[in-house]
Design a protein around this nucleic acid. Structure first.
Length: 859
RNA sequence: GCCCGGGUGGCGGAAUUGGUAGACGCAGCGGAUUCAAAAUCCGCCGAUCUAACGAUCGUGGGGGUUCGAGUCCCCCCCCGGGCACCA
């Protein structure tokens, strides 16, 4: 029996492609280009199944487009800055740079054997000074274009380690290393003014026809455009020079139900009052112990503090409302102050009940409306309700109408203004960390903040840094900060904040079009290659990465680094599901979770334990991530079965947009199938080809199926339904195996089916496909053969079998000519034995005939 | 808490988008081949009842629209992703 040996075959073809420079992308204006990009990986050091799945999908698209005649750009790089490198430095003493470049080398070694059609000549890492230097140039240009600002923002502060923590590093409100209770602290930070583009980023979503609807929805909700009323409550007595509280509300129609005025613990008034009120100070400090994440704030128990101040209702000066500080009011949204209407907001109602504040109904259900008791009455804004004493004279009206009328009323009366606001905040890019791109700014005592001169870029990270104590090593470096002022030349200090790693990944797709240019992009190259025609990556990036990239593309158009046509950089987006796996955890002495990798765990029936016998708790099935250690190493599969098996396996079964739980079973099956395909080639009789199939029923049937398979596999790939393409290839394989005819027509039909299979399998299992192609006598490389096109004359059938239903249940079937009339079908269906039995001599009440689909007889 | 997805045999999933539920694969069972095993080949394979023909039930749960619902509408449950310093 002929065996296919991936170990020798795969490197052979990889060398052939490399020798031919098959995948090097060359600018050629005479050919249509196609840019395929998968989200580049963080170099953790090991590839995982998620990578294999992601990059195989992109490779299938790239190889198919290449066969279809496109000039394909399919590059690869590394998202190389970020916290794990610093953590490794702290834990193991490795330098973040050494650690990162070693990981890149390791991962490249693991990726190369997979045979991806990548243009490795364009590879770069975001931590290359060449890359981040261009990023610094971009930053300076964006600064000049007015896209950057500086203002204060909240950070998670670890008071023991004296350092800023990422949200991920705050566990149950405590610092992950120190265990100290984390507090919110204000820091002056650098920001991209993305909120200036909020409306445009929202509006342009409509044009992204080839993006998943869910991603556009998530982005629209994130941007969060709202129309509301902004106005002030006058305080009955000024406090600390403040005589009013400005609020923003999207439900001004509920103003007559106002119960109290609420301000954020970080509101200027709350902070001013702290000075003389120790209890309030204690309350606010307690609130600040919730981290900065919206999730933590929203989940925290709702608590409040009565300031004792009173505010006048704008419509009735005699109506005084108490002013409360409440922990659920975000300083970042609106004005950091609200009025609460407990009758029509569940959170306000819970708060009012807790602190015994009034609940005043503003409107009731149009029919049988009862006053609010335990549950707030919050109907959709489009539903008509009955208004109680509405100042603008409404009786029965929808919320939407009432909001419009109220804003109108307030504007005419002059005490309020209709305002459109966005939930989207400016993008804080400052990080108080070492392993990121330095912000190329200099602090000069005389000149203030001055950008570094472009000829001095890159501002390189110093190599000699010390991670033995927490905090930003750049701050502590003895000399790195010292630099002459780019403007006046006097001694000055560098900015020590580095950039958020989202900045690095917001323009790498543009850099790939001219990765060695000495400007951020080469406009000529960018104009040819942009946009990315197909972008592929995880849904977990649906909001932030994609929104930031859309902002950056616009910023790069503004600063002349991209053509105007590239302001939406990704024509089509596909979000693949995640590769998930169970998590395994034990607890350390401090009771904190410690995670374990699947290969450390022994599963023996229900019992789960470590190799040393320690019992393990099985946690939820979640996306594979380094921090939870629930990762599986694909190298084991590649070593055992070869790259094609791994590639085939991740393309089969699970639809690509869906999460897939990794299980070891199935890789074996993929391998068996590829062996079977190879045997059909190696043991087949290829003495006939080009013989017309029409003389043989068997040959004709197989040829028809081959053409249907061309159509179905091509459609499956075009629609990102690779699992269906795989299923169709299984069917064709089964049919070839069943065909045993020894005539020239049958042999020829099998030869045609197998050469076609080699071409159709090429995007998924390229090495096997080359081997098949060569054995079948194909000329040149199969990757250079044009994509097969189905002959439609083989796709039409002249009879069709329709199911017959009686009362909606299938009772039989009828085979008719494809062009049979409704009447003919009905006559034939009614003559069917099963139908006669159910009719029992009676006339049918109704007969529904859907040609080509179904017949339904209603008795 | 808020926003967005998902839930179909023992398992991964398919279903022409309102028209035969379970394609294809895995696992399992039976058979052929073999001294034997592996590999390979052939057949069966949602549940219940039935000797069989067939019948009834069945797409997370409950209700509805329709000649016809996995697919559309309403309510609920469970799982996952995101929540602005994980990438």
């Amino acid at each position: 029996m002929s065996r296919y040996n991936a170990r020798t075959v795969e490197p052979k073809w990889q060398q052939a492609w490399e020798a031919a420079e098959s995948f090097a992308a060359r600018h050629d204006p005479t050919r249509p280009k196609y840019y395929v990009l998968e989200m580049f990986p963080y170099p953790s050091g090991r590839i995982h199944m998620g990578h294999v799945r992601n990059y195989t999908m992109g490779d299938v698209v790239a190889r198919t487009k290449r066969a279809q005649g496109f000039n394909v750009l399919h590059p690869m790089g590394w998202d190389a800055f970020g916290m794990p490198a610093e953590n490794a430095a702290m834990e193991r003493g490795a330098h973040p740079g050494d650690w990162t470049y070693q990981n890149i080398a390791d991962m490249r070694e693991q990726m190369k054997p997979l045979g991806f059609s990548l243009d490795w000549t364009r590879e770069f890492a975001t931590c290359d000074p060449d890359y981040y230097g261009q990023q610094q140039a971009l930053f300076i240009d964006m600064m000049e274009a007015g896209l950057i600002t500086r203002k204060s923002a909240m950070v998670n502060w670890d008071p023991v380690d004296m350092t800023v923590l990422a949200n991920e590093q705050v566990i149950d409100g405590k610092g992950w290393r120190s265990g100290a209770v984390v507090e919110r602290r204000e820091l002056t930070q650098w920001f991209f003014k993305i909120s200036d583009m909020a409306d445009e980023l929202l509006g342009a979503l409509d044009g992204l026809k080839d993006w998943p609807e869910k991603v556009r929805l998530m982005q629209a909700n994130w941007i969060g455009k709202s129309r509301g009323l902004q106005f002030s409550f006058d305080l009955t007595a000024p406090a600390h020079g403040m005589d009013k509280v400005e609020v923003y509300t999207t439900r001004p129609d509920t103003l007559m139900g106002a119960s109290f005025v609420g301000i954020s613990p970080d509101h200027p008034l709350a902070k001013a009052l702290e000075a003389e009120n120790a209890d309030l100070k204690a309350f606010n400090d307690e609130c600040r112990k919730t981290g900065t994440s919206e999730e933590a704030l929203e989940k925290a128990e709702k608590r409040g503090f009565d300031t004792g101040l009173k505010a006048r209702h704008p419509l009735n000066p005699d109506w005084e409302l108490p002013v409360w500080v409440a922990n659920f009011i975000l300083m970042d949204y609106g004005t950091g102050a609200i009025f609460a209407c407990p009758a029509h907001d569940q959170r306000d109602l819970d708060f009012a009940r807790k602190y015994d504040l009034p609940v005043i109904d503003t409107f009731i259900a149009a029919e049988n409306g009862a006053p609010v008791t335990d549950e707030a009455f919050v109907p959709p804004k489009s539903e008509a309700v009955k208004w109680i004493d509405h100042f603008a004279g409404l009786d029965v009206a929808t919320g939407d109408e009432a909001i419009d009328r109220t804003i109108d009323f307030a504007e005419k009366a002059g005490w309020g203004e209709g305002v459109t606001k966005f939930r989207l905040r400016d993008w804080g890019l400052s990080r108080q960390r070492y392993w990121g791109a330095p912000i190329p700014m200099v602090h000069c005592d005389d000149c203030g903040l001055v950008p570094e001169k472009k000829e001095n870029l890159p501002v390189e990270l110093p190599r000699d840094v010390d991670f033995s104590t927490p905090g930003n090593p750049l701050d502590r470096h003895p000399t790195w900060r010292d630099t002459p002022c780019p403007s006046c030349g006097k001694p000055a200090k560098r900015e020590t904040d580095t950039m958020d790693t989202f900045v690095d990944s917001s323009w790498y797709f543009a850099r790939f079009t001219s990765p060695r240019a000495d400007t951020p992009t080469d406009l000529d190259e960018a104009s040819y290659w942009m946009n990315v025609d197909q972008y592929i990556g995880g849904v977990e990036h649906a909001i932030l990465h994609l929104l930031y990239s859309r902002f950056f593309a616009r910023a790069m158009v503004k600063t002349g680094h991209l053509p105007a046509s590239a302001s939406e950089p990704f024509n089509a987006l596909f979000t693949q599901g995640m590769v998930t796996h169970e998590t395994y955890e034990t607890r350390n002495d401090a009771g904190r979770p410690v995670y374990h990798t699947p290969d450390e765990v022994v599963r023996d029936g229900d019992a789960v334990r470590l190799a040393d016998g320690t019992p393990v708790t099985v946690g939820p099935i979640i996306k594979m991530s380094k921090s939870k250690k629930n990762v599986v190493d694909p190298m084991d599969i590649i070593d055992q079965y070869g790259a094609d098996t791994a590639r085939w396996f991740v393309m089969s079964d699970s639809p690509p947009e869906r999460d897939v739980e990794w299980t070891a079973a199935g890789a074996e099956a993929a391998w068996k199938h590829l062996q079977r395909v190879w045997r059909l080639v190696a043991e087949g009789d290829h003495s006939a080809e080009g013989v017309a199939p029409e003389g043989s029923e068997e040959a004709l049937t197989l040829t028809k199926l081959t053409h249907r398979t061309i159509r179905d596999v091509s459609d499956g790939i075009a629609q990102f339904q690779f699992n269906k393409s795989v299923a169709k290839l299984y069917e064709l394989t089964n049919a070839i195996a069943k065909s045993k005819g020894t005539g020239a027509a049958e042999k020829s039909a099998r030869h045609f089916a197998l050469t076609t299979m080699a071409q159709l399998m090429q995007p998924m299992t390229p090495h096997l496909a080359e081997e098949m192609w060569a054995a079948l006598g194909g000329s040149g490389l199969v990757i250079d053969a044009p994509w097969p096109v189905a002959d439609y004359s083989y796709l039409v059938e002249n009879t069709v079998t329709l199911p017959i239903q009686v009362n909606g249940k299938r009772r039989g079937e009828v085979t008719v000519a494809a062009d049979a009339s409704k009447e003919e079908i009905e006559t034939l269906a009614l003559a069917d034995g099963a139908v006669q039995r159910f009719l029992d001599g009676k006339q049918p009440r109704k007969v529904i005939v859907v040609p080509g689909r179904i017949v339904n007889v209603v008795v």
